[in-house]
Amino acid sequence: MAVSFALFFSLWMGTGALAWAYWDAGYAPAAWGLGGFALLWTLGLLRRRTWLSGFGLVLLTLTAVAGLYLGLPFGWMLAGTLGALLAYDLSYFSRRLRYAAPGEDTAFLQRAHLMRLGPLTLLGLALSTLAILWQASFSFEWAVFSVLAGVWGLSLLVGWLRGNQ
């Protein structure tokens, strides 16, 4: 029950934040589109179409990136991305939870999951806010170095994760 509430709350919070930012900036069709997608996503989850969450995460993140390029406030965009990430995570968790046997302590699993997710969200929120407050200036050499380091680091990360699976 707590997971379902958190799932739909984060879904509507994420899309709501993005829709509000777009609406406020005068992009009403985009706001309506986001509202419609949130409805579709909710219905999809109620009909156990979990794959919609992956699609939703990508779509909302790209919408947030587009919003940043359009000059929309960072706070709303971050809230949108975080909401999508939480909804994505919780939808897969509730699907896994369906396989718990009737006698299994599902409350423990839910509590453990939310205890892991809560601090991560707060930490993400804090670090993102710090990052945006510390606006470092990018030189061309610094940008090239960061790209190469980013590619190398992320390749390692992906390789490790895929190897684990």
């Binding site: 993140t61 947030a64 990136v65 940043l68 390029y69 960072f74 965009m77 971050l78 991305t81 975080l82 990430l85 995570d89 892991r116 991560l120 969200t121 930490l123 993400g124 929120l125 670090l127 993102s128 806010t129 990052a131 945006i132 606006q135 470092a136 990018f138 940008a143 960061s146 790209v147 980013g150 990360l157 994760l161």
Partner: peptide, 22 residues
């Protein structure tokens, strides 16, 4: 990095944290 937009990079922080916890 390509657009030298710090806000977009900051948007990646929660995702990176989420993956790192894994």
């Amino acid at each position: 990095l390509a657009s030298m937009n710090g806000a977009v990079l900051a948007l990646a922080v929660p995702l990176a944290l989420y993956l790192l916890s894994g």
